[in-house]
């Protein structure tokens, strides 16, 4: 539609008024020899092309334009698609990297106590506000009790095992134990 509109807007051209106008007239005469003088002002017939021909011509031109630009756009689209893919891969990799770094800031610590006679063993520590609820060790068939806790690296912690809900003991497997100031002791661990 734009093409036909342009054709209609060609308007009239006055001969001799401007070298550009003269060049345009010469071009039109060359292009449309059967319609010499058409579209020129000064006695000539106004420039008027057959509308259907103009539209057909415009459509053909636009089809070629689309075809051409489609061919030209294809590599660009591929680049864009690949760039998007690369961005996605990079973003996912970064998320993974962040995850690894975060996980490297903590370490899974397995607390193990051999207490075959115990009915329950809990872990009470400064990292759980000395509240053993939720930190029950699981008993294995050989009488060992264990729990794995993720802890932040780079610092030390104090802890006790609580046997049967009432007996607080230090970890017998480590030498790091300190007087707690309340008449008992706590084990310490550095990560």
């Amino acid at each position: 539609m734009k093409s036909s509109k342009r054709a209609r807007q060609a308007g009239t051209l006055s001969p001799g008024s401007d070298p550009v106008v003269d060049a345009a007239r010469e071009f039109i005469e060359t292009r449309d020899p059967g319609e010499a003088g058409v579209g020129l002002a000064g006695g000539a017939k106004p420039f008027r092309r057959d509308r259907r021909m103009a539209e057909a011509s415009a459509d053909a031109i636009m089809a070629r334009v689309r075809q051409t630009s489609g061919r030209n756009r294809a590599p660009g689209s591929r680049i864009a698609m690949m760039a998007i893919a690369a961005v996605l891969v990079a973003a996912l990799s970064s998320i993974a990297t962040i995850g690894i770094i975060r996980s490297s800031a903590t370490v899974e610590v397995r607390f193990v106590l051999s207490a075959p006679e115990a009915s329950s063993v809990m872990l009470a520590a400064d990292f759980n506000q000395w509240t053993p609820d939720g930190y029950a060790l699981k008993r294995s068939p050989d009488g060992h009790w264990e729990i794995t806790v993720p802890l932040q690296k780079g610092k030390s912690y104090a802890y006790n095992f609580v046997i049967d809900g009432e007996r607080w003991i230090v970890d017998p497997s480590t030498a790091s134990r300190l007087d707690d100031g309340f008449g008992g002791s706590s084990s310490t661990i550095s990560l």
Partner: peptide
Amino acid sequence: SGGSGTGNDKPV
């Protein structure tokens, strides 16, 4: 690496 200052990722 200190993260959020939490000792662990448990709810408590």
